[in-house]
Design a protein around this nucleic acid. Structure first.
Lengths: 194, 194, 194, 194
DNA sequence: CATGAATGAGGCTTCATTCAT
DNA sequence: GATGAATGAAGCCTCATTCAT
């Protein structure tokens, strides 16, 4: 971000630009969207986008931060209150797929980010993995799950979620139905058991 | 591809163009590489690239096909001769990581492809998953591994390989050492066991 | 100028804008300075500059007028009281170099003006040349200096001062030391003698 | 310059671009001419200008080099064969004014250069002053002209030529007629005499 | 087959200027 | 008087693609 607005009007414009970016990036992809599209989408003048951002990449980074925040919040809310460790992880997967379904654009934006600014992409996964690893590690200590490098396990689980999400939610020519979901959760459980 | 070379000289030029593309795409990314860069890298004239390809995207597609072929061949070679099903899968993972280490550029090219031409990207994974699923399914029938949707299991395993490879081989600030590898293979084995 | 301030606060703002312009124009050059830079430099709001000026060019013109006034005043003060004509001209040169050293920005601003608004640039030199010529002409009549077209002599002398100042004061990789100065004044004297 | 053409066609295009630049810069001034104007003037496509130059500034630098070369050649030709030192200098002034009259655009381009790229502007004058100083110094040693710092004398003489040229040739509301010219040459002679 | 000059649409970015508060 | 958000025309530059040699 180049600068933050100081007035209420400015704050609203910034919001509109971010909302429009999210939408347009998801629809046309990062490289095909023009700043012009964003400005039109946000209903502001072309040049105003440049008041707040240094360019498209700058906006993308901001969106990744927002997505990261949203996803972590969503998972935290959906897994809070559960006691059994393996249930938590299973519930986490379900919550992730749910979020994925509602936020397909986020997947696309992350993929673009990997190419446009690898650093922010790494940041996203490391941030997720950090919290994930911390929780897994404490579960390992309590003997609730298999003992192994917590970060390795985090990436293992994230990889599963990502690929299954991509295959069955994003590509969408085949459903992640109840049967598949329960098969997956069983396999997961088998992998996690101490 | 637009057309194939008919002379020996032409065949060599085409090879040089493909090699250079591989290198330049991996270094600068698809969107930042110019046809000019490829021509320079290949040591051929600017316009010659257009004799063989219809454009950058066309080259990328060709590269994905080459990568797909290479990877499948590598895995086949490395897992042939093994009998025990779970050993085969474990060996497959090791072979994949080995290949990944030697072909980091391939990861990048695939990621670019996901954005530039989703079809070829899907084609790649579906092609891999197809063979993978077939083998898994027959193993399930023999009761060697857990019974579940074979394609689902394929994507699960590919997701693990992809994320672990990305984290420990591509990002490279942490090693996929013997300890981690054996922990991963154990977890894998636990998941696969019937 | 668009209008003059009516309050004390307004007068101060105007002063700050002019001071900042002088500084910024000299540092970055007319074409590269933005109204924004001036506003920041002056510590006033973006749009306020437009309360007093019609644009950048307008400010430049104002500065040229200020410079013209300053220079003529400086020269008048420094040469007043002298009797011998040739001494006056020599003292005038010394005074000019002194002023130049303290007002390098003025040289730059004048050069910019030559390009941005040739009229004000001509005005400046014609204004200087006018007074200069008047004094030279009266000296010629008294037989104190060589007889020739007074305006021609004015531009001749201004050319010398300008180029020597530029070379030794502005570019500054070589000094206009006492030796050089006295050589120059002697040559000047030789040229002026009747 | 970005690169040089390798074919005959390319060389012609480059020439046309340089010719057009000279013309357009002189007519509209550096800052007001658009690359587009140059391309139109040269009868080539917009983008071709960028094949050979990195931008307007790059072209300006090339032009200054050409002007420098032309002027020095012109002066050398016009003063060759003369013996008497003071005649040479007087002839040099005449030749300069002649050149100035035919190359007003050059004066404008140099003035722009002073602002756009001070280095090339300095280079121009230092290059001229170098040869000038060398010749003056040898004349001083022979006792043909007044002894003083040769570079200082060079800038003194260049300053006169520049300002007189600007006033009477460029501004043009008053002529540098025979009378004025001979007055100037006399004054010059008086200054130079040992 | 090979070369590299030429084309020109397209998108990025800047910033002078206006104006509602 | 002062503020700074908003506007949008203008020009820069890139580079995929064509084509004459």
């Amino acid at each position: 971000m180049k600068r933050l607005p100081t007035t209420e009007r400015g704050r609203k414009s910034l919001q509109k630009i971010l909302e429009a970016s999210k939408k347009v990036f998801a629809e046309k992809g990062f490289h095909k969207t023009k700043i012009y599209d964003i400005a039109i989408g946000a209903g502001v003048a072309y040049g105003l986008v440049y008041s707040y951002f240094n360019g498209k990449k700058d906006i993308l980074i901001e969106l990744v931060k927002m997505i990261n925040h949203d996803l972590r919040k969503h998972l935290a809310v959906r897994t809070s209150g559960l006691k059994d460790r393996i249930s938590i992880e299973q519930e986490g997967f379900k919550a992730f797929f749910e979020w994925f379904r509602e936020n397909k654009f986020a997947y696309k934006i992350l993929r673009e980010a990997e190419i446009v600014d690898e650093e922010i992409y790494k940041w996203h996964y490391k941030k997720i993995a950090e919290g994930y690893s911390r929780r897994l590690e404490s579960a390992m200590k309590k003997g609730e799950i298999r003992k192994m490098d917590p970060e390795l396990l985090s990436y293992t689980l994230m990889g599963i979620a990502d690929f299954v999400g991509k295959r069955y939610i994003l590509w969408g020519d085949s459903e992640l139905d109840e049967t598949k979901l329960s098969q997956l959760l069983s396999a997961l459980s088998a992998m996690l058991k101490p």
